[in-house]
Structure formats: structure tokens, C-alpha cells
Computed example of a mutant assay.
Amino acid sequence: MSAPRTLVAEPLTREAFAPFGDVIECSDAVRHFPINAGNTERYHDLARVDAGGRGRAAISIFRGQPRELPFMANMMERHRLGSQAFVPLSGRPYLVLVAPPSPRPRADQLRLFLARAEQGVNYARDVWHHPLLALEAESDFLIVDRIAAEPDCEEHVLDEGVELLLP
């Protein structure tokens, strides 16, 4: 039996994550400007919220239990009708496992990112991603996603598991 495929987390950057969606963070790389008589800095239009034609955008909070590393990922999910954003609220880093849109994700397509505590992600429509991968302790995330009458979560079991590690 061969050893499982291993992925070591890479830093989450706007450029590296662009094929999968948006990085949500305060950065000089994004448009920002003062508002409220200079008392507040607005980091503007950080992610494209895609609620699909028959959906609406909703805000929720997910509370994730920490994953123990190394962690064996064996499934992915995607939302075909809208985007899904995760913004950490608990001040902890977390992992982001993604694969590009395709009929089925393959282990050799996966990319693993280490998100800093102040970085959120917005998964574009059809991007395969692993469910929440909190680290260190129970963590809350603000979620912006599509709500509609029809279900919009497709799950797929990978042909082979992938071991997730930190650098």
C-alpha cells in the first residue's frame, strides 16, 4: 500500500488564491479610503457575493471544532449556485483546502492554504473546498452565503485521502 498524498499548507495570498475566489483582508493591495470624517478606513468591495438568480445573501455564524494535525482529508464539497465566504471571528489561523471547478475533485488538484487570523476567504461558485478546518481551539466564523429553497451543497468523496500538514 502506498503512502498517502501529503499537502503542506502554503501562505494564503490574493494572487495564489485568485483561481478559487477572494481573500478578505485589510491590505494596501486593495482599494481603501477614509470615511466618517476620517474616523474609519473602509476597505472596499473585498469579495464578490454571488447569491445566484433565485437566492439571497445570508449571514450566519459557524462554530468549528479544531482539527488535529496531521489531518486526513477524504471529501470535498462545492456550491454550484452561489459563493460562500468565511471570515474568522476568534483570532486564530485556519486551513483552506480547495480544488478548481471540475466534475470531480482529484487529489492532485488540491491546494492547501494557511489563513492568518485576520484573513477571510470567499469561495467562488463551483470551487471545491473542504468543510471548515479550524485550528488550535473552537473557533467562530462569520459566513456569507446563498440561501434558497433548493439545496446547494454537493459533496464528493476523494478517490484517495490526503494528509494535511503545516509547514
Rank of each mutant, 00 (worst) to 15 (best):
G21M: 05
G21L: 03
D22T: 10
V23H: 05
V23W: 03
V23P: 05
E25I: 04
E25V: 08
C26K: 08
S27M: 02
V30D: 05
V30K: 07
V30H: 00
H32D: 00
I35H: 00
I35S: 07
I35E: 11
N36G: 09
N36Y: 08
A37F: 12
G38C: 09
G38K: 03
N39T: 15
R42V: 12
Y43S: 11
H44N: 10
H44K: 04
H44S: 12
D45V: 06
L46I: 09
L46N: 00
L46G: 02
R48L: 13
V49T: 11
D50R: 01
A51N: 06
A51W: 03
A51D: 11
A51Y: 02
G52V: 00
G53A: 14
R54P: 00
R54W: 06
R54I: 12
G55W: 04
G55D: 10
R56D: 13
R56S: 14
I59S: 09
I61R: 03
R63W: 09
P66W: 01
R67P: 13
L69T: 12
P70C: 05
F71I: 10
M72F: 12
N74W: 12
N74L: 12
N74I: 10
M75C: 14
M75W: 14
M76K: 01
E77W: 01
H79C: 03
R80A: 15
L81Q: 11
L81R: 01
S83M: 06
S83L: 08
A85R: 00
F86D: 05
V87Y: 00
L89A: 03
S90L: 05
G91P: 10
G91Y: 06
R92I: 00
Y94L: 00
L95C: 01
V96L: 11
V96Y: 07
V96W: 00
L97T: 07
L97P: 12
V98Y: 04
V98F: 04
V98D: 03
A99D: 08
P101Q: 06
S102Q: 12
S102I: 01
P103I: 06
